[in-house]
């Protein structure tokens, strides 16, 4: 009797996996993305950015942290040296190689974006997962909490968190930006897990007496993470922009040596009349990367949407 039940259980598990798409949906979505030029552009931008970030120390032509005497000699109160042999983009406000700082900045921006997103994702998934899996008063309590977090405009929430820090650093920015995305991830995961709970394959698994833990981890979670992954890709873009905004407001790392796009953009505002390029290049870098992640995320959303299945 028990062995028969076990076999049936296993069969339902297998059926549940293949029926709701599992790999086939993913493969399907990937195939659709490969046909979509928007997805390809996004993927290429993201790939270039990640490669640049990973190999930044080897790609950067000069040392991004030490000022060069040649450049320092040309620094005046009303002029910062522009492009010249050896320094294709000229100097920054301290006589350091601007191009090298931009390249190394990719690394720092990737770290900030990815860490902020991962922390937000992890905390949000725990909250949303608990709410979606347990339901009842836990769900009500956790969702009220996210409502309250959502009731403070996101940048202001980040500002109030960042203002708590005794010593502002890169981590203050990362955590402040991460907290903003927590309620969004939590609501998303909970929403799609609730939809799973009502679905037939979960009902079938429950009817067969599969343990709740197995149902949650094998049937509900894997089928619920799609929208969350899409959101995470989009959050990478907003995280980088929000981090830049915090730096601009003076809540970021006060260390002027750090090469990070948001910080560079924030610092460059003081030299806007002298050399607008100092603001322009980091800003364009942020825009392009944010656009890359947005394009990738949007086309992922489109590809995963069953309405668009052809």
């Amino acid at each position: 009797m028990t062995s028969l039940l076990n076999i049936r259980r296993r069969r339902v598990d297998e059926l549940a996996e293949t029926a709701e798409g599992g790999t086939s949906l993913t493969v399907d979505a990937l195939r659709r993305m490969a046909r979509n030029p928007v997805a390809i552009i996004g993927a290429v931008i993201v790939a270039v950015f990640v490669l640049l970030a990973l190999f930044a120390p080897w790609i950067a032509p000069e040392d991004p942290y030490t000022p060069f005497q040649v450049l320092k000699d040309q620094l005046r109160a009303d002029s910062i040296p522009g492009p010249q042999p050896g320094f294709p983009l000229g100097s920054d406000e301290f006589g350091r190689d601007f191009l090298s700082r931009l390249i190394v900045g990719a690394q720092q921006s990737l770290v900030v974006g990815v860490m902020a997103t991962l922390i937000g994702l992890a905390v949000g998934m725990v909250i949303g997962g608990l709410a979606g899996a347990l339901g009842g008063w836990v769900d009500t309590l956790l969702m009220r909490l996210t409502d309250i977090m959502l009731s403070v405009p996101s940048l202001l929430l980040a500002i109030s968190i960042a203002a708590l820090a005794r010593h502002p650093s890169q981590w203050t920015v990362i955590i402040a930006v991460a907290m903003v995305s927590v309620p969004i991830f939590a609501r998303l995961l909970r929403g799609s897990m609730l939809a799973q709970r009502a679905s037939d394959h979960v009902l079938a698994a429950t009817a067969l007496g599969v343990r709740r833990r197995t149902i949650v981890f094998r049937h509900m979670l894997p089928n619920s993470v799609g929208p969350v992954i899409v959101q995470a890709t989009l959050t990478l873009a907003t995280s980088i922009i929000d981090a830049a905004a915090l730096s601009f407001l003076g809540l970021g790392d006060p260390d002027p040596a750090r090469a990070e796009w948001g910080l560079m953009l924030g610092n460059a505002q003081r030299y806007l009349d002298v050399r607008p390029e100092l603001a322009f290049y980091p800003a364009v870098a942020i825009i392009v990367v944010a656009l890359g992640f947005t394009l990738l995320g949007e086309s992922m959303r489109e590809a995963l949407d069953p309405k668009n299945r052809r």
């Binding site: 873009a237 922009i241 905004a245 953009l265 942020i286 944010a290 656009l291 947005t294």
Partner: peptide
């Protein structure tokens, strides 16, 4: 719209200011 969301507000402000005012 995609570009619009990706541009940091303060940079856009500076850009507008630089081009149309300065």
């Amino acid at each position: 719209t995609l570009v619009g969301v990706a541009v940091p507000v303060f940079f856009l402000g500076y850009l507008l200011k630089y081009v149309f005012a300065n």
